[in-house]
Computed example of a mutant assay.
Amino acid sequence: MRKRMVIGTAVAVTIVCVVFAGAFAFQRKLIYLPESGPLPGAADVLPGGREVTLATSDGLRLASWYFPVASAKAAVLVAPGNAGNRSYRAPLARALTARGLSVLLLDYRGYGGNPGEPSEDGLALDVRAAQEFLVREAGAPLVYFGESLGSAVVTELATERPPSALVLRSPFVDLASVGQRHYPFLPVRWLLRDEFPTRDHVARVKAPVTVVYGSADSIVPAEQSRDVALAAGAETVEVRGADHNDPAFSDGPELIDAIANGSGAPAQ
């Protein structure tokens, strides 16, 4: 009997160790969900759109799209969430350029056919390459806009290179807080290699901050976005009944108004 108990305990411990090891080894496959595949040309998405290449400090060349607007009041650096590619943000670019704003749709390393593998450190280099491009090309104040994971990316950037305004859509407190909600059976905070501490970073940002979130978000709980806003002393825009990936967060009026208001562009 005792021998069976020892064997059973050993098997259970082995299974737990295998689960934890797998979660550690493959975690980035769960966090980052890039899509490659054929993409339209930037000019097909919006007349005047440009295919641009961003050079990172670690030697990567990242394909992205730039939509310049003559005499733009501001240029918007769009840092996307963890899934898809830049084609998913085409409606956002159309809506923002219609408001007189230039737009850069960044695709991170590993996304949209770009080389490299995504990581917290890698995305920090990618967004810096995007910011440097806009400083050279835009000739206008910069607004950083981040979606979900991208909120963490641009917030960290803003601590070192302040924008005219920072707009965060569905930001989380940190990656572990989201992960623990979805994987409550794992010690997520111990296992994670990437932290993305949005709340800690946003408290150090000097620029005006706006937080946009959905009241029915099933991926990033609304209370986490509100915690980020509180840490920043930010203006908040709650989109009633909206879930994380609803059309309201593609080109909905509340989102577009929040970005345009942050840029100083006239309201519509």
Results as ranks from 00 to 15, higher is better:
Pro208Ala: 13
Pro208Trp: 01
Pro208Phe: 07
Val209Trp: 07
Thr210Glu: 06
Thr210Gly: 02
Val212Leu: 06
Val212Phe: 07
Tyr213Gln: 01
Asp217Val: 10
Asp217Gln: 08
Asp217Trp: 09
Ser218Arg: 15
Ile219Asn: 11
Ile219Lys: 12
Val220Lys: 03
Val220Tyr: 00
Ala222Cys: 07
Gln224Cys: 13
Gln224Gly: 11
Ser225Met: 09
Arg226Cys: 01
Ala229Gln: 06
Leu230Thr: 15
Ala231Ile: 05
Ala231Pro: 04
Ala232Arg: 11
Ala232Cys: 02
Ala232Met: 05
Gly233His: 10
Ala234Trp: 00
Ala234Ile: 03
Ala234His: 02
Thr236Phe: 00
Thr236Leu: 03
Thr236Ala: 00
Val237Phe: 05
Val237Arg: 13
Glu238Phe: 06
Glu238Leu: 12
Glu238Ile: 04
Val239Arg: 06
Arg240Leu: 12
Ala242Arg: 08
Ala242Gly: 04
Ala242Lys: 09
Asp243Gln: 12
Asp243Glu: 14
His244Ser: 04
His244Ile: 03
Asn245Asp: 14
Asn245Lys: 00
Asn245Pro: 10
Asp246Asn: 13
Pro247Thr: 04
Pro247Asn: 11
Ala248Lys: 10
Ser250Met: 10
Ser250Leu: 14
Gly252Met: 06
Gly252Ile: 04
Glu254Arg: 09
Leu255Val: 01
Leu255Met: 10
Leu255Phe: 02
Ile256Thr: 08
Ala258Gly: 01
